[in-house]
């Protein structure tokens, strides 16, 4: 499934420029080491962490996008680093639980 389709279907708000890549799966976690260990390339990562290391982790893992759940406001430097690194940041008012459920229902598999 393409990222643009996910964004449209779930009404996600883009905080940084969108690159319309393929989404191969999803992962939910707020522990960075856990994400590093278990996220996969081209995944969507759902988290409530909103500091600049989110961009570093997403970039290292080549995630297609990061969804900040629960309307978490990204810290300013997160936006800056994410833009620099070409990390697509998305925002939703839904909780991590809800957005994960919606993604799963769309047919996005586990990581």
């Amino acid at each position: 499934m393409r990222l643009s389709q996910v964004i449209d279907e779930l009404g996600l708000r883009a905080l940084t420029p969108v690159q319309d890549r393929e989404v191969t799966g999803g992962y939910v976690s707020d522990l960075l080491s856990d994400v590093l260990a278990n996220g996969r390339e081209a995944n969507i990562w759902i988290t409530i962490q909103a500091h600049r290391n989110v961009a570093a982790v997403a970039s290292l893992k080549d995630f297609t996008a990061v969804i900040l759940a629960g309307n978490r406001e990204p810290q300013d430097d997160l936006l800056e680093v994410a833009s620099q690194e070409g990390v697509c940041l998305l925002s939703t008012p839904m909780t991590s639980y809800e957005i994960a459920g919606r993604l799963y229902a769309l047919g996005v598999p586990p990581s």
Partner: peptide, 15 residues
């Protein structure tokens, strides 16, 4: 609180 310190950093490196 920042999401570090989960106690799996070193095991991750080992992996």
């Amino acid at each position: 609180v920042m999401g570090f310190g989960a106690g799996i950093g070193l095991p991750n490196i080992q992996k």
